[in-house]
């Protein structure tokens, strides 16, 4: 199971929940699992071209260090403490 933390994303889909635990080795699988728990997330995160929508940051924490994941849906995430999904907030 992978812990996924939502930071200022999808409050309407998650009912305000800030985290969830889902199955998945790749981002695509994690997003599919999230979509089962909270229908609509997949449509928000994967654009019409089948790629990760650029309005989100996906980060992974390993050993206390958080770094951005490469935006490749089929790359294995590996052993992580948690995956974080946040908006690309650039000013304001």
């Amino acid at each position: 199971m992978t812990k996924v933390r939502f930071l200022s994303v999808f409050p309407d889909l998650t009912g305000g929940r800030r985290e969830s635990e889902v199955e998945g080795r790749t981002l695509r699988e994690i997003i599919a699992s999230l979509d089962e728990a909270f229908p609509g997330i997949k449509a928000r995160m994967i654009g019409p071209g089948g790629t990760l929508y650029p309005g989100f940051m996906v980060l992974a924490t390993r050993g206390g260090k958080t770094e951005p994941c490469r935006p490749e849906l089929d790359m294995e995430i590996g052993d992580v403490d948690e995956v974080i999904i946040a908006p690309v907030a650039a000013g304001g």
């Binding site: 309005g55 908006p87 907030a89 000013g91 304001g92």
Partner: peptide
């Protein structure tokens, strides 16, 4: 297209958590 979803739901409060992260 989803690009304004977070801004619509949170306003610019959507920046707080990412700024900390």
């Amino acid at each position: 297209d989803g690009s304004c979803d977070s801004l619509a739901k949170y306003g610019t409060w959507n920046s707080t958590a990412p700024a900390n992260l």
